[in-house]
């Protein structure tokens, strides 16, 4: 269970990353969605005890992230955004080191690392220095760490960034197989659709949408996206969202598409919200 009450984070210099954030979620796979600077990473860092909040309360599985940080750290595993492997060390060395940090014995660490590296198809490269691996393989080292951790709650901050579509799908299938609770942040709508039981969309440090995909898309079920006309500007493209009946007159003139999570992102998380 993730519980966040009036959580605020103001960084040195006055940047407000989280603004009186309140929500709770008890699903097994939660996705935090939002544009750059929405506060996703700040929230994950606070929930995984890496960063102190300015004010408010946050609990993970009943543990307060400030008061019970040591107890909480026993049940969580957190893979930071932009984490990079140490170039000279091998995948096996990375995973074993991480597991000993989580309290595993050497024997158990090796066994769990072996299993996880096999699962992410890195076992045959287990002894290769990380700087000789491809970008996708490097990212999979961290997925293997999370997989092997046996943590009750796993935080994955943009786990598939920079991966090719095939590697991304591979990582998705691994994430789906993880028996632990997974809290994920992503920029990829498809990823959120594939992996989430619940989505929390953030904008400027506040929750602007929360629910499962069906609920979120429910209120737009009679609407479509028309590209090429309308007041909403996305880059050089104008778009508008209108009823299906109304859209009939544009058939053959403009591309018409069903509303997806990407559209909710454009409508709610984008800079156009005020307009």
């Amino acid at each position: 269970m993730i519980e966040v009450f009036h959580l605020t984070k103001v960084y040195k210099g006055g940047v407000k990353a989280l603004d009186d954030l309140t929500f709770s979620s008890s699903v097994k796979r939660l996705t935090l969605l939002g544009n750059n600077g929405a506060g996703k990473t700040t929230l994950v860092r606070i929930l995984s005890t890496q960063l102190l909040p300015t004010s408010g309360i946050a609990r993970v599985e009943g543990y307060d992230v400030v008061k019970d940080a040591k107890k909480l750290r026993k049940i969580i595993s957190s893979i930071p955004q932009e984490a990079q492997p140490v170039g000279i060390a091998s995948p096996l060395e990375h995973v074993v080191m991480y597991l000993t940090a989580r309290g595993f014995s050497f024997k158990d660490a090796y066994e769990s690392a072996r299993k996880a590296l096999k699962e992410v198809n890195l076992w045959e490269f287990k002894d290769k220095p990380a700087d000789e691996l491809s970008g996708g393989m490097k990212r999979k080292i961290f997925v293997a760490m999370a997989l092997a951790s046996n943590a009750e709650v796993i935080f994955l901050d943009e786990p598939t960034v920079g991966l090719d579509p095939l590697s991304r799908m591979e990582v998705w299938s691994i994430i789906r197989s993880i028996p632990s609770k997974v809290i994920l942040t992503t920029h990829y709508m498809e990823e959120a659709e594939e992996l989430s039981e619940e989505i929390v969309m953030l904008r400027k440090g506040k929750v602007i949408l929360k629910g499962n995909l069906k609920e979120l898309l429910g209120k737009f079920k009679d609407m479509v996206r028309v590209e090429g006309i309308g007041d909403l500007k996305v880059g050089l493209m104008n778009i508008m969202y209108i009823n299906r009946e109304e859209a009939a007159k544009y058939v053959g003139k403009y591309p018409i598409k069903p509303v997806t999570l990407e559209d909710l992102f454009i409508i709610y998380a984008g800079e156009n919200l005020e307009s």
């Binding site: 995984s48 005890t49 930071p80 984490a83 940090a101």
Partner: peptide, 17 residues
């Protein structure tokens, strides 16, 4: 370097180290 570029310190803070 390990804190800023590798993010190793964040990884370890959220563990039992």
């Amino acid at each position: 370097y390990l804190r800023n570029e590798i993010k190793l310190q964040d990884l370890l803070v959220a563990s039992q180290v």
